[in-house]
């Protein structure tokens, strides 16, 4: 059970949050101009890596804000949390 540092509320138990999958996948601005393959890339393709992963999280039972998290999936270490639209402090 993680202890997550919500960028708006501070440290809270994981049970207050829900994970929204891989971060930094931007919805195409002009979907109609994409081929089936390009659209499928956006729609379906998600990474599931062992190691450092960038994820979207939502403080669902709290401020309801979405934010990003850098987590090592092999040991659940959280390296950073940052607001939507901000650049990741870790490359």
């Amino acid at each position: 059970m993680f202890l997550i540092n919500c960028p708006y509320c501070g440290e809270r138990d994981q049970s207050e949050f829900s994970c929204g999958g891989e971060a930094h996948i931007v919805r195409p601005k002009q979907p109609t101009e994409l081929s089936d393959d390009q659209w499928a890339e956006y729609l379906f393709m998600r990474k599931n890596i062992k190691g450092i992963q960038f994820e979207r999280w939502n403080h669902a039972h709290g401020c309801r804000k979405w934010f990003n998290m850098v987590r090592d999936t092999s040991n659940d270490k959280i390296y950073a949390v940052y607001k939507m639209g901000e650049k990741s402090p870790i490359e």
């Binding site: 929204g20 931007v26 919805r27 979207r56 939502n58 669902a60 309801r64 804000k65 979405w66 939507m84 639209g85």
Partner: peptide
């Protein structure tokens, strides 16, 4: 509500 909030906060801020 969650889905709409998601779009508002992340895709169309």
């Amino acid at each position: 509500l969650s889905k709409l909030e998601d779009y508002l906060q992340t895709e169309w801020p």
